[in-house]
């Protein structure tokens, strides 16, 4: 159920990975794009969004270890309005901490879809950009942006906390400029993203779109 604006496009998804009795538990509407609330309101809201970034750390790769120092007194990310948040529902920035295998991309997709838009994605390390040193592995995803829209890539193996802070600053500029519309991009190219995801996730046992 969505509160607020009226839905326009209603095309049913099959949720084919699910058992019959589970199907009704999940939403079967594809995501849709959202427009801003008018130029100046949206500018103000974007400024608020940029200065209150709640991160969901997806710490399966080695990059997660570089996020910890950010919270300490030395780097102190709280002064930039960045705070960790334990659940995908409440967070607005999704940090993918390094390489993603097929098993983890499944969880990444689910977590990403559970976040509420507008949502932003930061991918850390070379592995998320082109597979890094694991590019020829049977199990490492080469390009994260084929599966979920990525706003900022932070290169390095692994990037230092300073680099991550610089990445956050770049993300803030992008949000304030109104360019960070990853959720809308995902909704527009939904079938393309789903096809890419289903190409590598062979046992698709989750809903096609889960809230």
């Amino acid at each position: 159920m969505i509160f607020g604006k009226k839905r326009k496009v209603v095309t049913k998804l099959e949720n084919d990975g699910l058992k019959a009795e589970e199907k009704e538990l999940f939403c079967d509407l594809p995501p849709r794009t959202y427009k801003g609330l008018g130029k100046y309101v949206e500018k103000f809201l974007n400024w608020a969004r940029a200065n209150s970034l709640w991160i969901l750390g997806f710490g399966t790769g080695c990059g997660a270890i570089e996020l910890r120092p950010l919270m300490t007194a030395r780097y102190d990310m709280f002064r930039y309005g960045i705070a960790p948040r334990p659940t995908p529902r409440q967070s607005s920035v999704f940090i993918i901490g390094g390489y993603a295998s097929i098993k983890t991309i499944k969880r990444i997709v689910r977590s990403y879809e559970q976040m509420q838009s507008p949502k932003f994605v930061i991918a850390l390390g070379s592995c998320t950009i082109n597979g890094g040193m694991y590019w020829d592995s049977y199990n490492t995803v080469n390009r994260i942006d084929y599966y979920i829209p990525v706003d900022i890539y932070i290169a390095g193996c692994m990037p230092r906390p300073e680099a991550i802070i610089a990445g956050f600053e770049a993300l803030k500029k992008r949000i304030i400029a109104g360019k960070a519309e990853g959720a809308n991009k995902y909704a527009e190219n939904f079938s393309w993203y789903k096809a890419n995801q289903k190409k590598i996730i062979k046992d698709w046992n989750m809903p096609d779109y889960n809230w």
Binding site: G4, R49, S52, A73, Q116, S117
Partner: peptide
């Protein structure tokens, strides 16, 4: 630490209320 600015709770509330989707 330096800590977040004093007006951070206001920003958080504005941001949360300005989220576009809700379930």
């Amino acid at each position: 630490r330096f800590g977040p600015p004093v007006w951070q709770p206001f920003l958080d509330i504005i941001k949360n209320n300005a989220k576009r989707t809700m379930i």
